[in-house]
Deep mutational scan, measured.
Amino acid sequence: HNGKLCKLKGIAPLQLGKCNITGWLLGNPECDSLLPARSWSYIVETPNSENGACYPGDLIDYEELREQLSSVSSLERFEIFPKESSWPNHTFNGVTVSCSHRGKSSFYRNLLWLTKKGDSYPKLTNSYVNNKGKEVLVLWGVHHPSSSDEQQSLYSNGNAYVSVASSNYNRRFTPEIAARPKVRDQHGRMNYYWTLLEPGDTIIFEATGNLIAPWYAFALSRGFESGIITSNASMHECNTKCQTPQGAINSNLPFQNIHPVTIGECPKYVRSTKLRMVTGLRNIPSIQYRGLFGAIAGFIEGGWTGMIDGWYGYHHQNEQGSGYAADQKSTQNAINGITNKVNSVIEKMNTQFTAVGKEFNNLEKRMENLNKKVDDGFLDIWTYNAELLVLLENERTLDFHDLNVKNLYEKVKSQLKNNAKEIGNGCFEFYHKCDNECMESVRNGTYDYPKYSEESKLNREKIDGVKLESMGVYQILAIYSTVASSLVLLVSLGAISFWMCSNGSLQCRICI
């Protein structure tokens, strides 16, 4: 991952900044910058967002509201009850120091605090018919004063009620008058409520006091790749198909172990950190130390980045220098085999997901714990399936590479015959000098055995068991695999060879 928040398929997220979902939807004055928000790819909250409900109280069923919003990608904020005409018999300019803005008392931008007009609070009834052709999110509140005197001074009615009804919602609220500790300079409380109004449905408000009335509502448009994440990451000019709280993932790998919460087309989250597919040879310690064997393909974004291909070729060293050249036929066979294998694994496992966190309130801790156990169970199954699949494929890959290298080895052996000696570690020792032209003939299969047989015969008789390297004779190393990324691999195959001279070296080696 890149540690950044990015656009998702070209669409920017909605960053709530210092506000949370509650503050944004109710219209906390400190969240005025969010009022123009219309569309987004996903919503970003920060872990310690401080601006929620400015007048103390709870947004009821907040967790369910977050779940609903996680599939919303755009909205239209509109005046559901026009301020100047909807409440002619009531005062609608209630403000509070708890919702101060720029040093002055204020109130929510989407709600109206209705109080008595003169000395009376006549029963009010108002309704709205949803003609938007889509779901409408309606929010309101109920004020709970701290004393009967406060109730009387604001609403005149000691036994007030609030009723809200639609086809799918029907509740009646009565204020709970009680002494409470002071929070944000208030002994009173406000509880906030919401409902989704279906197209064509009607919502009716009736009250004799204590109503925090809707002013603006939201017509919602769903987008199934949307979601809500909690993150401290910063926004950058970048684009992605998959976003996590820790950063964007741009990967076609089937798995990731970065974060379980994802938005967009994302690899499946697994616990494993070692889900690797081999593309090189079986481990040979001396070669492995030099980083030549054991190439791997990573299938977990965050564990290993991208696929690494092994390729086969020849390396030689003689009086004229040293050089490398790919054996294109065996390399292409290996590439085709690995590509098919990788595609097979991805096809089997690479279903892209959006995974969002589930919200539970403080009273639902047991449910949250149960949900976590269920999620953990599914996660263990996914991890096991992934590891088992790759384990089985790896064994076949190792066998496949062994065969490829063996074929190259036999190709060289059949040409050199007794003009060189096998020394048991995949290397041959020449009994004759071999210049670049000679080396090329070994690589392309045109090695002239009779041409060098007499010199080889004489050297075999002279050496008589002495280690060949100390006599200045020449080696050919018969097994060799270097490691390159897919891009470098293609470039390498396009070149005939490249040279690395070893000044004054008397050794001649050709490596497979």
Rank of each mutant, 00 (worst) to 15 (best):
G302C: 07
I335F: 13
A297P: 02
L458K: 11
L416D: 07
A355R: 07
E410P: 00
L391S: 02
Q328V: 14
S456I: 13
P254C: 07
L477N: 01
E429R: 08
F353N: 14
I284P: 00
N407Y: 06
V473K: 03
N371P: 11
D375R: 05
K413H: 10
K372W: 03
A233S: 04
N436C: 10
N283S: 03
A325D: 00
T262L: 03
A295I: 02
M277L: 14
I308V: 14
N407S: 15
K241T: 09
M277V: 00
Y384L: 09
E429K: 11
H259P: 00
K417F: 13
H401P: 06
G494C: 01
N239H: 13
V345P: 00
Q320D: 12
P450K: 13
V488A: 08
E237H: 06
G337W: 00
Y449V: 12
G313R: 01
S497L: 14
T273W: 05
N361Y: 07
K433E: 11
S286M: 09
E461S: 12
V473C: 07
G445N: 10
Y312G: 11
T354R: 14
Q507M: 15
Y289D: 01
H432V: 14
S502W: 02
N232W: 10
K433M: 08
G302E: 09
E265D: 14
R460L: 08
E368G: 12
I296D: 06
P285G: 02
D435W: 06
S344H: 02
R282G: 06
N394Q: 11
D309L: 05
M367L: 15
K411V: 06
G298A: 04
E347K: 05
T446A: 09
G264C: 05
E437K: 08
P245G: 09
I263M: 11
C427M: 06
L370N: 06
V345H: 04
D464K: 12
L281A: 03
V261K: 10
F360N: 09
T354M: 01
M367D: 14
N362Q: 10
V278D: 03
M277Y: 03
W382N: 06
Y431S: 00
S470N: 08
K462E: 00
